[in-house]
């Protein structure tokens, strides 16, 4: 509470955001992932012939890996905070994606 009679100044404008500071790691990680993917993409377009394929593979690896790291980070966070139900749901999702990777590898071989 705030305002007259409480000894605190009346609040003006929106309340302070209680989310401030939450998920900072994830925000920083995603910003870094955007920058690195962008650099790999631009480099693939301007690099000499021999390096292009490697840079293209790295770019695609970032696009595949970043959302999966995000889910993994959420799963660990939910388990650590006792939110077992959604932690297990996240594990199930990572299992489905892993199954896709296994099937893709079987297709290659």
């Amino acid at each position: 509470m705030s305002g007259a009679g409480t000894g605190e100044p009346a609040r003006v404008g929106p309340p302070p955001d209680p989310r401030a500071g939450r998920q900072r790691f994830l925000v920083v990680f995603l910003r870094l992932a955007v920058s690195v993917t962008f650099v790999f993409g631009v480099a693939e377009l301007i690099a000499p012939e021999g390096f292009r394929r490697v840079l293209g593979i790295l770019m695609v690896a970032m696009l595949i890996g970043a959302p999966l790291v995000r889910v993994l980070w959420l799963v660990i966070r939910w388990f650590r905070r006792g939110d077992l139900r959604y932690g297990l749901v996240g594990v199930g999702l990572l299992g489905v994606v892993s199954l896709g990777a296994v099937l893709a590898l079987l297709h290659v071989h």
Binding site: L63, A66, P67, L68, V71, V97, G100, A101, A104, H107
Partner: peptide
Amino acid sequence: GITAATSLIV
């Protein structure tokens, strides 16, 4: 983004 990651793997 997750759907796309799954499809990109395949």
